[in-house]
Every structure is written in structure tokens, then in C-alpha cells.
Computed example of a mutant assay.
Amino acid sequence: MFYLPGFDPREPEVYWGLFRREARLTASRRGEAIVVDDPVRSADGLELAWTVRSRGVATRYALLRWEDIVRARFPQSGWARLRGVPTLLWRLWRSGYAADLRREGWRFSTVIFGVHVIYLMLIGLSLAVAGSLAALAPAVLQPWPWLAVPPLAYAILAGLMRVTRGKPLYVSHLVDDTAFTHAYAAGRAPEVATRLDAFADRIRAAAGEADEVVVVGHSSSSFLGIEVLDRVLSQDPGFGTRGTPVTFVSIGSVIPWLGLDRAAKSFRDALLRFGRARQIGWIDVRAPWDWLSIHGQNPLAACALTPPDLERPAVLGVMINDLITGSDVRRRQWNLFQMHFQLLMASQSTQGFDYLDLMTGPEPVHALASAARKGDDALESACRPGR
């Protein structure tokens, strides 16, 4: 199992801790032992891997690391945001992207553009406060205090960004994530391409060592995972046809966030090629309650491409009540990032979808992809415990 995280600057051990904690919950609720070994960083620093043992199956779970790239772009400097946000918003509005994104994912676009509106309001508030302080200065000092308005407003804005960095607003995170996504679309993130090449080599090598290869792309890695597997196929067109099944699982997907950008021609070409690559299974796990994902229609069609295979991806829809109880839904529903990660956490139900059960159980993931292509009845059967 290869897991590609989203735009997250945290150390990869955080994900191991989350996986171990949630695996214990899944094991206790489903009556199956799940043993998670300690993590080991590879010598080249490319991955953090651990072994999971459950029901007679040993799974090597490797997190492919790019948090150093994220840290170089988040948080941006205040000056970079001040220069970049208006320019980007103007480009996206003028090109029609903003309207396209709203059509394909109105909840997601509401969050993303709403956060940018909040950022612009914080700029206005900072200027207003700094101007008010200048106006309160003694008349004998006027008009010199007004010269201090720009640096004072900049300092106030920096404080406001620190206050709103975390929940519930996540202003700096989402603004900087948006900047990264569109920089990548325009080819202005060359460091990512180098990392994806290294990931592709790692995944390609695993096909000869495992009974099954699964690549999981969460959030922004829903599109990075496609780029990685497209690189693998360009190097080895026979990958996935030599006896080792390969499956891509997109979860919390935001593929149209990138693909609708007219600058993202390279990605759109990769997405179209991957849409034809039937030797690699593709499951799109969709959660209509997740405001930080885009889950309306086929991701190729959402990116204004004609899907070459209408059965790709196989869709697995998960309702929030299948994962957590009503009281927890009320408590967590406005914590957007926690809800965005909910699909990676243990289900409180003993039936239906559970990420930890899927990743550690004896049933191969490619069987779930096949079941999803055959219809809802087969899929429901494949998702039950003890399948």
C-alpha cells in the first residue's frame, strides 16, 4: 500500500499515529486483531513505512513523503500572499474557472473562494485599524503618523493570519494550498515533478515484490497519484498486466480543482491517458458531506474531458452516518479538516466501509474495484466484514 497525503506540512509519523489509533478502534469494533509495527524511514527519506498484520495477511504500508515541499510553500510570507492572491483571483475569474468550479463543486468552491474573501476582508480590517490609530495621533504630529499605516497594517494582518490559521477558518492553509495548486497547474512547481518521478520508481519496483499494489491518493494527492501512475505507465506500459494487480484509490478527491484550470494541460493529458489505462483499477471513494472534496460526477467529465471508459472510476459512495453517530456528526460537522479526514478513520459501524479494514483485511482491494464495476449489490457484499 502506498499512501500519498494531501497538502500537509506535518511529519509523516503523525499519519502513523493516526493509522495505529484508528486500527485499534477498527479491531475492537469488528472483533479482529490488527497489529501495527513501528514505522521506519527509508534511507533516502522518500517514505515512512510500517507493517500491518491482520487475519493472516501482512501489509507493507508506505507513506510517500512530500511534506518538505509543502513546508516550502506553507506558510507563505505575508508579502507573497498580498501580491499573489489578487493576481490569482483575477486570472481565475477572467478565465471562467471560478464559474466552472462552482458548477462542479459548489460546496468546495464556497469554502475556497469564501476563505479568500475572508483574507481580503482581513486586509481591509488591518488597514482600517491602522488608519484609525493614525487618526488618533495628536494633531501636532499630523500627518506623519499616516506614514506608519502600511507597516502597522502589515503587522496587524500577520497577527490576524496567525489567529485564523487553525480551525474553524484555516485561512492561511487554504489560501496557500490554492496558490500551490494553481502554481502546479501552470508548471511553476518543478520540485514536485522530481518527487513524483521518484515515487513512480518506487511504485514500479513494488510490482515484482507484492501480491497486490494499491496507491491511495488523498485530497491533493488524488491528482498527484494520477500523475505518478501515469509516469509509471509511460516507463512501463505493461505495468499492471503481469500478474500483480494494481489499484488506485482516490479519496477526498479534488481532481477538478486542478483539472479545470486551463493552465493544467499537462495534467489533463495525464488524466485522459489514465482514464484509458484499464490495467490499473480505480476506485473513487466519495463523501457528499465532505466540503473539502469534489464529488459530483466522473472526474474526467468534471474536467471537461470525454471519459474514454464510463466505468472508470468505480464509485464508492459513503454516507456520514455509516462512519460516525449522530452526536459526533453534530460535534464535528463544522470542523472541515476533521471531516475531510473522516474517511481515513475507523468507522463506528460494524458494517459497510471502513478504511482500516479495507487496507488491512485479507480481501484484495482490486476485488472491491471489480465489485464496484459490476454493480451496487456486489459492492455491498464486498464491503461487509468477513467478505
Rank of each mutant, 00 (worst) to 15 (best):
E11A: 14
W16L: 00
R20S: 11
E22L: 02
R24F: 04
A27L: 03
S28I: 08
E32W: 02
V35N: 09
D38Y: 07
V40K: 12
L46A: 14
E47T: 12
L48V: 02
A49N: 05
R55L: 11
R60G: 05
L64E: 02
R65V: 15
D68T: 13
A72R: 15
P75E: 08
A80W: 02
G84N: 05
P86N: 00
P86M: 06
T87W: 12
L89V: 04
W93L: 06
S95M: 06
A98L: 14
A98E: 11
R103D: 14
T110H: 13
V111T: 07
L122C: 03
G124R: 03
L125Q: 01
S126N: 03
A128V: 02
S132L: 13
A135E: 11
V140S: 15
L141G: 01
P150C: 01
L152M: 04
L152S: 04
I156G: 00
V163I: 13
T164Y: 04
H173P: 03
L174F: 13
D177T: 09
A179V: 13
A179Y: 03
R188Q: 14
P190I: 10
V192F: 11
R202T: 08
E209S: 10
A210V: 05
G217C: 09
G217I: 07
S220H: 14
V228S: 07
D230F: 01
R231Q: 10
S234R: 11
Q235K: 14
F239D: 01
G240P: 08
P245Y: 05
P245Q: 03
S250V: 02
I255D: 03
D269I: 01
D269V: 08
A270K: 12
L271M: 08
L271N: 03
R273I: 08
G275I: 04
I280W: 06
W289G: 00
L305W: 11
L305C: 11
P308A: 13
E311Y: 12
L316R: 10
G317I: 03
L323H: 12
T325K: 09
D328W: 14
R330N: 13
R332G: 07
M339Y: 00
H340L: 05
Q342D: 12
A346F: 07
T350R: 14
T360H: 09
T360Q: 09
E363R: 15
A371H: 08
G375T: 09
E380K: 15
